[in-house]
Amino acid sequence: MGAVNYGTGDYITLGLNVNQVYNELEQNYRHDRADAIIDKYGFVYLHVVAKPGYYDGFYIEIENNFPVAFDWYQEKQDAQKEITQVKKCLLELCRDAKAVEVFPGWCTGYSTEAETRDAIKKAVQEMRDDVRRTPTWAQYNRG
């Protein structure tokens, strides 16, 4: 009987396929590599973090930190630019830390690397749509 090992993010959840990496040292190396990749980006509008699994491995959690409304239109543009960086980060995590899309549950499912790249594209589009739907304060106050 299994148990839930990974949490989920707002758009996509990447994690280490623990069925392919049994060595704890290798798991720790990949988790450290994921931390280093994420740290170099310094995200503001999205919270991206590598968290340890409950039992083993790690997963990448992405949380939407968009405000109720952006202060001005330039902030929306900055958020879109950050999403481009998030895409680069996720693809780098897939390539260098061997993180793949995971489906947490009692029996965790894992995507292939190719399926993960496709899922990243869809998640990025969803992030972009969320930014487009988030108004500026001027739009918000108009109602």
Rank of each mutant, 00 (worst) to 15 (best):
D39W: 01
T13F: 01
H47G: 10
I120Q: 09
Y110G: 10
K122N: 13
I83V: 15
V21T: 10
Q27D: 00
F58R: 06
R128K: 12
G15T: 02
R128P: 01
E24A: 15
P104G: 05
A99M: 06
K76N: 07
V48G: 03
G53E: 03
V48L: 12
F58H: 10
Q77D: 09
I38L: 08
V21G: 06
G53I: 06
A114K: 13
T136M: 05
L93I: 05
G2L: 07
L90M: 14
T134G: 06
A36Y: 03
A79K: 11
H47D: 15
D39Y: 03
V102L: 07
G109L: 09
R95Q: 11
L90S: 05
Y29I: 14
Q74M: 06
K40C: 09
K88N: 11
V124T: 12
D39A: 15
N23T: 02
V18Y: 01
T8E: 15
F43G: 03
V48R: 10
A69N: 03
N141R: 08
G7V: 03
N17D: 15
G42K: 14
Y22R: 14
K122T: 12
V100P: 08
V102S: 06
E113F: 02
F103E: 12
Q74T: 07
A36V: 02
D32W: 11
C94N: 15
A138K: 12
E115H: 05
Q74G: 08
T84N: 14
Y140R: 11
R95D: 01
Y55H: 12
I83D: 05
W72T: 06
I62A: 04
T112V: 02
I62S: 02
M127K: 00
K98A: 04
V18K: 10
Y73E: 07
E113P: 00
G42I: 13
Q139C: 00
R133H: 09
V124N: 06
H47T: 11
I12N: 04
R142P: 00
F103P: 07
V49L: 12
Q85F: 13
Y45E: 07
K88Y: 02
R33E: 12
Q77Y: 14
A34Y: 04
N5V: 04
F58D: 09
N17T: 07
L91R: 15
P135T: 02
Q125E: 15
V86K: 04
V131P: 14
I60K: 01
V18P: 07
T134P: 08
R132A: 12
N28Q: 14
M1L: 12
Y110D: 06
K81I: 08
V124R: 07
Q77S: 08
R132T: 12
T8L: 01
G15N: 06
R142E: 00
Q85T: 09
V21R: 02
Q125P: 14
D35G: 03
Q139L: 04
D96A: 12
A50I: 03
D78V: 07
H31C: 04
I83G: 07
K51P: 00
W72L: 01
C107L: 11
T134H: 03
G9A: 00
Q27N: 09
C107Y: 14
E82H: 08
Y55M: 08
R133I: 00
